[in-house]
Design a protein around this nucleic acid. Structure first.
Lengths: 222, 222
DNA sequence: CATGACATTTTTGTATACAAAAAACTGAAC
DNA sequence: GTTCAGTTTTTTGTATACAAAAATGTCATG
């Protein structure tokens, strides 16, 4: 099953939007993108339709398609839902966790620990994502796993910036440790509670979120 | 902001899929749809891209686009997530409910009660949807409200069939009453617990779900 | 200089054209 | 009758063409 140009363009644009290369409200010019990707307008338009459907872009009939980044308010809302989904996933995962799962999680967790020592936020975030994704799958609910992963991906730049807050990476690491031992002990409640603190930047570290948001939208203005 | 043909076709197809007019695995033939809607393939293809992105269709490169209805297993997963989101919405709604909200909910609830008396499941489901949707909005989290409404819509045919199970409509009505009085009394926990029972067809009425599923997929085979 | 009617250019949305891949058909060999 | 190479037909994906709407530019009038 080979990938089509239109699908590759869709993914490329998604990446570029999430990474902040394409700024909020920026027009996604069909002609410009066509020449950028070396194709005609047709596959570009199909990619734009898909981005619009997934919420990363906004389409105004006969006006054009524009990057649609969340406002601070929307970001707070998204984190609130993210927290709920992550907690649901860990709750379900706790009921069906296997030795093998624990092994996989612990291996990744150790890689994270090394990244903390090396103060390597990029590496930490990468492995952290993999670890969380594994928990989603462990829930046994693939619909949930999918939705959660997609939301996780969309919040990526903000979650990543969080790690640069002083002491946050160590704190995150400690939470991972608690979650893992709770899973091992079959203590679902503790796992859920810790996960809630782990994700819920809104309740616990609202100011950090605001400054991450500002730092990203400032970057966009330049 | 006038609606474009491609957008109308997208919505029409969504409706036809959810309503079961277009069956699972059925090929969404571009030429056929073009002549059906009296347009060229271009807007049809754009509509199909969007349906694929939203999960209602599946696209296999160079093979075609096919209706993608959930399997029984996926349906169970979706109801599980639906329950979580509805509970989250009512929990948040309970914290910020106003007199005006209560009034709106009670009005709709009374219309529901009349529908029960008339044994009118269609009317009941219609107003019931509006009532639930109002609760989503009351959560104050529009991101959550959107996601929840969309999932609600996708589960519509199954939720609706549920109401035809003997005694289910009366039971549903009684739960609405409890949820409303809990909201009025500011008792979030009770509202959440009742909502959980209200939605969680999987835990409580799994057999009913299986038979709804079978009745829908039987219909598709004919 | 501001304003607004009119013309020009650009951009969007859809139709059509065409290349290439997949599916369907044909018919010979067994 | 079955199988399979070779061909034809259909379908998909992209390019191009074109109509219509929106944006932009021009310029006379006040």
């Amino acid at each position: 099953m080979e990938r089509l140009p239109s699908a590759k363009i869709r993914d490329s644009l998604e990446q570029r939007i999430v990474d902040g290369e394409l700024n909020n409200k920026q027009r996604l010019d069909e002609n410009e993108l066509s020449s950028f990707y070396g194709v005609s307008r047709t596959p570009v338009r199909e990619a734009l339709q898909r981005l619009t459907e997934s919420g990363l872009a906004e389409h105004l009939p006969r006006r054009g398609t524009f990057v649609r980044s969340p406002s601070l308010g929307q970001l707070v809302e998204m984190f609130e839902v993210m927290t709920e989904l992550e907690c649901m996933a860990i709750r379900l995962a706790a009921r069906r966790v296997t030795i093998k799962d624990i092994k996989v999680l612990e291996d990744d967790n150790e890689i994270c620990r090394e990244a903390v020592k090396a103060n390597d936020t990029i590496k930490y975030y990468e492995v952290n994502s993999r670890l969380h994704n594994h928990i989603y799958k462990m829930s046994g609910n693939s619909f949930l796993a999918n939705k959660t992963r997609r939301l996780h991906d969309r919040l990526r730049p903000f979650r990543r910036l969080q790690l640069r807050v002083r002491g946050r990476m160590t704190e995150s690491m400690a939470e991972h440790d608690i979650i893992l031992s709770a899973l091992k002990a079959g203590d679902a409640d503790s796992a859920v509670e810790t996960m809630k603190k782990h994700i819920d930047i809104v309740g616990v570290r609202f100011n950090d979120l605001v400054s991450s948001f500002n730092s990203i939208s400032d970057k966009n203005k330049r």
